[in-house]
């Protein structure tokens, strides 16, 4: 049996290090990497619509060619601020292989940790307008009316916006993996 999860609590910021939300940071594992920078941002809100101000978000993603085992280090960690907003600077991932002969649309995995979450939540950010979204095997498992909770929308230049609702109206689709 695997070890039981426990909440990350309100003091996880002891593990927050400057720049981990910027995958392209100077001196970081991807410094000097080619590729178009994008920002993934959004607000996390709770069941009352109030901002979740003490969450930790981690991302894991492929490189622009869809590889997880290439030179690109696709990991980032960010906090939510007093408005519940998180922000990552990264590159847009490419399509990655699915099971069998399937292809998955470009996506970034998000894991959300917070006080009040006894286990972390896993979800994904897809990108609006991607043709592959229509044939993505995971999106196909999600009822159409909830699919939008997994699809980031273009914001300002180079910005992709995905708001996350932990609970209640418009609740984000979380994944049991």
């Amino acid at each position: 049996m695997s070890t039981a999860h426990q909440t990350v609590g309100p003091y996880w910021h002891l593990l927050e290090y400057e720049g981990w939300d910027d995958l392209l940071r100077e001196g970081g594992p991807n410094a000097g990497m080619e590729g178009e920078a994008v920002t993934l941002t959004g607000r996390i809100t709770d069941g009352a619509g109030a901002p979740v101000t003490d969450a930790q978000i981690e991302i894991w993603q492929a490189d622009p060619e869809g590889r997880y085992d290439g030179a690109f280090h696709g990991f980032g960690r960010a906090r939510t601020d007093e408005a519940g907003r998180f922000r990552f600077r990264t590159v847009k991932p490419g399509p990655v292989p699915g099971r069998g002969n399937a292809t998955q649309a470009p996506h970034i995995q998000l894991q959300i940790f917070a006080r009040g979450l006894l286990r972390h939540l896993t979800t994904r950010a897809y990108f609006a307008g991607e043709a592959l979204n229509h044939s993505d095997p995971l999106l196909a498992l999600v009822p159409e009316e909830r699919r939008g909770t997994l699809i980031a929308k273009p914001g300002a230049a180079g910005e992709w916006v995905l708001d996350i609702r932990l609970r209640g109206d418009g609740e984000t689709v979380f994944l049991d993996i």
């Binding site: 909440t7 997880y68 990991f75 990655v96 009040g116 979450l117 049991d176």
Partner: peptide, 29 residues
């Protein structure tokens, strides 16, 4: 545990197949 009340999702998670996204993880240097 009071903080769960406003934050725990109400809907069941969607069971997703394990793909390379879930089977791989960052290698930390």
């Amino acid at each position: 545990y009071r903080s769960t009340q406003g934050r725990a999702p109400l809907l069941a998670p969607i069971r997703a197949p394990i793909t390379v996204t879930e089977a791989s993880a960052p290698r930390f240097d």
